[in-house]
């Protein structure tokens, strides 16, 4: 069972190479932007010197907060990329094998439909975010090195300004928790996408997203409530994973007043609240239902 899952997930990576190529491209583009940024600001010799002096004399908390914010800019772009990948991957996962007619070949092997569908779910909720996480770590390190080199050329002390002030392990631990928790929070949507990809005959993107807008609109018109809108969109952007503030507010102006808090990303994560959230568990149940339905359809549908 486990070794079959590993082979099946490896198969997904062969078929959907975007899972690692997309974050690789993001990493390269962002590092390249770091480099061009360095070249550009190097032209302002005097101002750069002043900035380095200013940064050197800033308090450690302020430096940590500033670097955390910069690291988070990188992380959030990977997170956005991973989320887009998860959407497109799960919409394609059970659709492509029917489009290219290879489904009967896959089904001629001693692999059950449940194993296959679960491998695709695992790829979406685990492999894609964890791959993105690995690239986040590498990109953080690579860019810290690039900036260290630049700082040294400019006569700054990179060890003091960057490395001693970068709460890397705090940041990575928090990012890893987010990388595991957010897909669980969004799993009902991923389950829905997999379910659409198993039954739709064409354009899974349209078939998946149209009802997500039409159903809340109809609800609004019929009963002027917004249960579906809240369940789909409001819920998605309000995971109960953070203390006090929402993800959307991490970069708020307020942050400069609560800088000590901002320096540690880990301190912002409220795992107990996440794990005790009924909405999270309900979401997992919804994901489970969609996945079961997808397995059932793949198993019992007559392909002809």
């Amino acid at each position: 069972m486990i070794s079959n899952q590993l082979s099946l997930v490896r198969r997904e990576l062969w078929e959907h190479r975007a899972i690692y190529i997309a974050p690789l491209v993001i990493a390269l583009v962002m590092s390249l932007m770091s480099l061009t940024g360095q070249v550009t600001i190097s032209a302002f010799g005097h101002e750069v010197d002043l900035a380095i002096i200013g940064a050197s004399s800033a308090g450690e908390i302020e430096r940590q907060a500033a670097i955390t914010a910069i690291l988070m800019v990188f992380t959030s772009i990977f997170a956005l990329g991973a989320w887009i990948l998860m959407i497109f991957y799960s919409l394609d996962a059970l659709y492509a094998e029917r489009r290219d007619k290879s489904i009967l070949f896959w089904r001629s092997l001693p692999v059950t439909d449940a194993e296959t569908v679960i491998s695709k779910l695992l790829t979406a909720v685990l492999v894609i975010p964890l791959t993105a996480f690995a690239f986040v770590v590498v990109t953080h390190l690579l860019n810290l090195i690039l900036w260290s080199i630049w700082l040294s050329i400019q006569g700054g002390d990179a060890g003091h300004l960057l490395w001693s002030a970068a709460p890397l392990f705090d940041n990575w631990a928090a990012t890893l928790i987010i990388a595991v928790a957010m897909p669980l929070w969004l799993s009902p949507l991923i389950g829905w996408f997999l379910f659409v990809s198993v039954f739709t005959r064409r354009s899974p993107l349209l078939i998946a997203f149209l009802p997500m807008f039409v159903v809340p609109m109809l609800e609004k018109m019929v009963s002027s409530t917004s249960l579906f809108w809240d369940a789909i969109f409001v819920r998605s952007v309000r995971p109960p994973l953070f203390k006090g503030i929402d993800v959307s507010r991490i970069f708020d102006e307020d942050n400069f007043q609560i800088a000590a808090d901002t320096a540690s990303l880990l301190a912002k994560i409220d795992l107990a609240r996440f794990l005790s959230s009924p909405s999270m568990w309900l979401g997992l149940v919804v994901c489970g239902l969609f996945t079961t339905a997808a397995i059932y359809i793949r198993r019992y549908r007559d392909e002809s």
Binding site: E97, D100, R107
Partner: peptide, 15 residues
């Protein structure tokens, strides 16, 4: 499926 194989015109290998 451990002991049976099939080749069908409609069961094509993934491209």
């Amino acid at each position: 499926m451990r002991n049976i194989c099939f080749i069908a015109d409609v069961a094509v290998l993934p491209r």
